[in-house]
């Protein structure tokens, strides 16, 4: 491994730690402890991981963020996989309630983004309720562009800001 490869690896490791940190930030464990939930290699649950209503072993999905395209509240395949895992987990933990927080990048009007963030949160709620999760367990809130995860400009940064977070209440 040459020097450049070492640097690249170091950057990737650092980045994965940063993202792991982000994903973890909003998660509060069911028992109230702050035991780390996110482990390397457990980043994105696959659709196979959706265990179905009868699987009492469904684990808390490690990812709680769903990303969106610009000016869109459509949920893509990756987002559906995350949500399917959350639906399975919620079915197996019927006392848990969640809040979905919709967020937008800074482009476009502040007021419109507030409504767009709500549409994103609604889309996520719709996906979960379609899988049998009672809508009373799923609250929504939009922060529009007011709470950017990344404050710079450019698509790499904006993409991080167009998301809905699943937060345990």
């Amino acid at each position: 491994m040459n020097h450049r490869q070492q640097i690249t690896l170091a950057i990737m490791l650092a980045a994965s730690m940063v993202f792991a940190g982000c994903a973890k930030k909003n998660v509060v464990n069911a028992d109230g402890s702050n035991k780390p939930i996110v482990h390397a290699g457990q980043q994105m649950p696959s659709t196979n991981g959706v265990a179905g209503a009868n699987n009492m072993d469904a684990v808390r999905p490690s990812t709680n963020v769903i990303y969106f395209a610009f000016n869109s509240s459509a949920i893509d395949a990756a987002g559906r996989a995350v949500l399917d895992a959350h639906a399975a987990w919620l079915r197996n933990h019927p006392t848990m309630a969640i809040t979905i927080e919709g967020n937008c990048d800074q482009r476009g009007s502040r007021e419109y983004n507030l409504a767009l963030g709500q549409e994103r949160a609604n889309a996520v709620r719709g996906h979960l309720t379609a899988q049998g999760i009672a809508s009373s367990r799923v609250d929504t809130v939009s922060f529009g562009e007011e709470r950017p995860a990344c404050t710079g400009t450019g698509e790499a940064c904006w993409a991080q800001n167009r998301h809905a977070d699943i937060v345990t209440r």
Binding site: E111, L114, E119, N122
Partner: peptide, 25 residues
């Protein structure tokens, strides 16, 4: 859900705003 963008009517009797209580804003 959403409670946003209030604007008074010209006669001051009403306020128009955005709500998402029934789903879409």
């Amino acid at each position: 859900g959403l409670n946003s963008t209030p604007e008074f009517s010209p006669d001051g009797r009403f306020i128009a705003a955005t709500l998402s209580i029934h789903g879409d804003p």
